[in-house]
Nucleic acid binder design. Structure first.
Lengths: 228, 228
DNA sequence: GATCTTCTATTTGTCTGAGTATATCCCGAG
DNA sequence: CTCGGGATATACTCAGACAAATAGAAGATC
């Protein structure tokens, strides 16, 4: 595990502070010298952190005007880092719901496309992931990673780069829902059969079957989650 | 129009070079001193550019190992800046198709949700955008902006932040499809009625009607585009 | 021979301090 | 009241030095 650099740490701290509402849209940050001094870091490191947050759409800075938080609509909420920051503290309940809703829109359609376009290699990746879930179980870290791999493989099997780039966002949602479920009830239902039916439909090039199986999987997962 | 900063310019140049395949995944960049020297800029500015591209998932850099291009699957292709860079040169034909396919998945579902959840303010925004399209026409810059505003208003009316953050990606697709159509045939069909039927369905809180109207709009737009 | 450990050299990361450029704000003219 | 033009605060860029970390080689151990 690579050690975190100073600019990464500052970007993470500032990013989470913004996501948690400690800095609100329109708020102006202190000047570079004051801010860097307050954090006991050089202006260089501080500026690179700012550059990261600007790249993620959360800040904008101009000479004389200063650096300020952009309106929430411009934030790249689906950026992997931003998602990680958002989930590092208290999970924002309505945001999780929204992310899950997005899954409900994307994944059934992606499963249908995957049934049409998947090649053998991607099918093998799905099988491997399924095997990983079976062996490790969803309670373990490895099992959850396999779960994410399964969903990622489906998105990649669509052969659509734009869709595939949503994999990390969907993966974050996947990770969070399972963690959420486990916190309250001790894994009330085995989700493996749901995943297997999606897999067999995709393997059989059954477009509507894959769509419906994925929709069913998500529906059941949502039901499990709401029982908390 | 704000003048472009040096680090922005370098990030844009390097980003487009990567997107166009001039630097391929796994390739290592020259060291910071050589690269900055070759561009006649300071290491500071060059490093901030690198930081931007790392934030967008296109580069990774570690001491001793150098800075290298990440595998394509990690690029944030839906990031507004990355999309702008991708569209600045030759538009990558299959990528545009993928983006359009994503629209086809997201927008009908979003329209359905918007029909259920829209409030008066968002409805007014859609009406304004529609009026803008009517007045300026889709040939003008203002008309195209109004078109994007319409689609953005629908995504915002879902009251789902994750969905709304796809607005800029969808907007880029919208902009590019109209530009693509206009290049070949001189606007073969008036898309305004299609938009109006989506609007009336959303105004009437007609969920399935909105979904179908949006699907029809996209279907027709796709047909127009393929006639090139 | 293969694997683990240690060392080192290369590359990014961080710091300091100075100077530049730009956009906001204010003020004065029309 | 509107518009233009300058003062000023702020981010931006530069230069050069030092620190930290790690990939890769050399060596030690089994």
């Amino acid at each position: 595990m690579s050690t975190e650099r100073i600019h990464q740490a500052i970007a993470r701290a500032l990013g989470t502070a913004i996501l948690m509402g400690r800095h609100r849209p329109g708020d102006s940050l202190e000047g570079e010298i004051e801010s860097a001094g307050a954090l006991h870091v050089s202006r260089t490191a501080y500026r690179e952190a700012i550059r990261i947050l600007v790249a993620k759409g959360m800040l904008e800075s101009r000479p004389k005007a200063g650096t300020r938080v952009t309106p929430r609509g411009r934030w790249n909420l689906l950026d992997p880092d931003v998602l990680a920051w958002a989930f590092s503290g208290d999970p924002d309940e309505p945001f999780i719901a929204g992310l899950f809703e997005l899954r409900g829109i994307i994944e059934p359609a992606a499963a249908a496309l995957a049934a049409l376009r998947r090649d053998e290699k991607q099918l093998a990746a799905m099988a491997d992931a399924l095997e990983g879930m079976r062996v490790h179980g969803l309670a373990s870290e490895a099992g959850q990673a396999a779960d994410q791999d399964f969903h990622r493989a489906i998105l990649e099997a669509t052969h659509n780069d734009a869709l595939a780039s949503l994999a990390s966002s969907v993966g974050a949602a996947v990770r969070w829902t399972t963690r959420f479920k486990q916190r309250h009830a001790a894994l009330p239902r085995d989700p493996l059969p749901d995943h297997e039916s999606v897999f067999t439909a995709i393997a059989a090039r059954n477009e509507t079957g894959a769509r419906e199986a994925m929709a069913r999987l998500l529906h059941l997962a949502l039901a499990d989650m709401e029982r908390s």
